[in-house]
Design a protein around this nucleic acid. Sequence first.
DNA 1: CCGTAGATGGATGGTTTTTCTCCACTTCCA
DNA 2: TGGAAGTGGAGAAAAACCATCCATCTACGG
Lengths: 234, 234
Amino acid sequence: MTPDRAPTAGTEPPRMRADARRNREQILRAAREVFAAQGPDAPLDEIARRAGVGVATLYRRFPDRADLIRGVAIDVLTALGEAALTARDAEVEPFEALRTFMHAALDLKLGSVMPALIGRLEADDVLDGVRQDAADPVQELVTQAQAAGTLRPDVRFGDLPLMLMRVSRPLAGGQLAEDSALAHRQLEIYLDGLRAPGTCDQRATLPGPAVDLGWFKRIRTRLIGHQSPSRPRA
Amino acid sequence: MTPDRAPTAGTEPPRMRADARRNREQILRAAREVFAAQGPDAPLDEIARRAGVGVATLYRRFPDRADLIRGVAIDVLTALGEAALTARDAEVEPFEALRTFMHAALDLKLGSVMPALIGRLEADDVLDGVRQDAADPVQELVTQAQAAGTLRPDVRFGDLPLMLMRVSRPLAGGQLAEDSALAHRQLEIYLDGLRAPGTCDQRATLPGPAVDLGWFKRIRTRLIGHQSPSRPRA
DNA sequence: CCGTAGATGGATGGTTTTTCTCCACTTCCA
DNA sequence: TGGAAGTGGAGAAAAACCATCCATCTACGG
């Protein structure tokens, strides 16, 4: 998922110690979640805490916030590109490949981090390369599915990542247990909206929890007055 | 939109001064935007600034943060209920009414505030009543559209507000000019996914900007390194 | 098995944000 | 026109956050 290299990936292969590498990955994982939920100015203390490491470890690995943000972005986009390639190779029907990819990307919480970070990234060769690697396979999937006549012709590339950003953002600060399942369900509906006219009969049954009015109220109530004992932060 | 009464709506009709009432509404409007963009812990200074009033005015109207959050929630849910009723009365075909309602709700940025506030609300009779008034007409629209056979039968009430929350949240902290148009476009796709099988031919053409790969990259670039000169906050 | 370079965590001081009150001045309304 | 209600902004107190230092610990090559 992440190159086993130093923070600022360059040409040197410094072979970090095993525990250091492990910690670095846990920091990136935690940072991804926290940035997604709280935005790019989230306290670094919290990221360290959630990663199970001390603050000093975080500062050693990522000297300042920009480094960390950059690291998360590269990590995330790398995984995104891999997910697209995997989906392309695993499915024969291009629309199904697209569908597989979208669900995979959602699982990785990819779309939720980037909008939080995008205003803080600086142009960068490594980053640009990773971006290219992430975007190209997706564009390819779109072209193929439209050529096959299963993806409606008036959608464009942007409709996919942009909806991914929307649908993968945690709903109520990540306190809702069913959040992921609900996101997949709603993504499925969106995907049905993306099918070409005349292919509506190929719709799958909707997965995940069907939230009726009563359930909706219960969800709401469960979240009310949740005083966030340990972390009253945003 | 908002009752012309004092913050904690009770039985007294104290008849606020005209300018005070005007300011109160501007505060609510500003708070709605800021909470939506920055979450429930956004600085109150900024809300006051954006409302064009001094901080003292805000504190006079809403003694503490909880009061303000409550006020915003009531304001927002009231408008939501009204939008649902308006849509129901304006359209004959129930699916079209649903569609009108969803777009109206999106315009009001309704869905984006509630998820930010929902963890901070305390149970309350007034609030519960307003919530009921907001939810019931929507449920009614769902029932009617399913009875008419134009809304797919396996969707439930929750699929509407939950997607509304997702799609109406600003994408990149609200710095993207096309944000609203894009949201409407993607909502339209989602709505097409909600149509009953066999009614796909009734799809409208997609509105709003069709973002292809090139445009997407340009959007990305435009946001890069945006140092947020005046407000480097989350 | 051991020595050491590298890695770790948490306390700590200093800085920046944010809150919320106070008061001199302004504005609506009767 | 009188006066009560309303207003803005300065500023002190409090809280949150950053970023470093150092005593201790651990992976790993010999």
